[in-house]
């Protein structure tokens, strides 16, 4: 167990293992995404109230769910790098930010497009949407803050603190539809009790949520590999890697 943690802190090992995970996970993810999208777009019945516009759910909900989960990954990695000074945790935190920002952006844009035919408006300043926008700014804030420092140790610390403080926003996003009156509907899938969504719509949705988790993992690992190469550029193993 301890040797595993020890290895996690080793850049060449992490670089290699991330590469071997990506070699099968990335193609699998792309196939699953394509299959889920085709299933949701063409092989499900329309919603009895919203008609065909509901098909956006198969990208909107997965993107939003994983954008939120990704924030936890970023904050936990930030916490680990802050407390135990693990360099690879700092790499993971930095690599999370662009992925989370992209997914939050997708959730906001698809939600906006979905809102037009359903609510009659592209945008409302309600609790769920506004807190999601804050999530986007938190992700972008981490990216910008990292670039703002010349001293990368200080940058890592500042970003870790920002991402930890930002976790306050996550339960607010989750609970926003219950706490405040909102146009946004509450969750249809529940872990406890009956889900209010038909199985024929639920299965492609679950496939897409799984695919988006896998996609997050792939993008995270790819960014981490790039960041490791950058930081280890002067070491022997990277020279051997690029020289070969």
């Amino acid at each position: 167990m301890w040797s595993f943690f020890h290895k996690l802190g080793s850049p060449p090992w992490l670089y290699r293992i991330a590469g071997s995970i990506l070699s099968w996970l990335l193609p699998l993810t792309l196939v699953a995404l394509a299959a889920g999208a085709v299933w949701g777009l063409l092989y499900t019945a329309p919603d009895f109230r919203q008609g065909n516009s509901y098909r956006i759910i198969y990208i909107h909900v997965p993107a939003a769910v994983v954008a939120l989960a990704g924030y936890y990954v970023m904050a936990i990695a930030g916490g680990i790098s802050l407390i135990w000074k693990m360099k690879m945790a700092d790499v993971a935190m930095k690599s999370c930010a662009p992925v989370g920002a992209a997914l939050t952006f997708i959730a906001l844009v698809t939600g906006s497009i979905w809102g037009k035919p359903t609510w009659g408006t592209w945008w409302v300043w309600d609790a769920r949407i506004t807190s999601m926008l804050i999530l986007l700014f938190l992700y972008l804030g981490v990216i910008a803050l990292y670039e703002a420092y010349d001293n990368k140790d200080a940058a890592g610390k500042a970003c870790a603190v920002l991402s930890l403080v930002g976790t306050v926003n996550i339960p607010i996003i989750y609970k926003s539809v219950d706490w405040w009156y909102s146009l946004h509907q509450p969750a249809s899938i529940k872990f406890t009790g009956e889900s209010s969504i038909d199985p024929s719509m639920l299965y492609p949705l679950l496939l897409m949520i799984g695919s988006f988790y896998a996609l997050f993992t792939c993008a995270l690992l790819m960014n981490m590999r790039l960041e490791i190469l950058r930081r280890e550029a002067r070491t022997g193993w990277v020279r051997k890697l690029v020289g070969a």
């Binding site: 956006i56 990208i59 844009v109 698809t110 497009i113 035919p117």
Partner: peptide, 16 residues
């Protein structure tokens, strides 16, 4: 066309 919702749905998927 998706009964009039096609533009919204396909645009959302294309942007994603």
């Amino acid at each position: 066309v998706m009964d009039g919702h096609g533009a919204f749905v396909w645009a959302a998927y294309a942007i994603t």
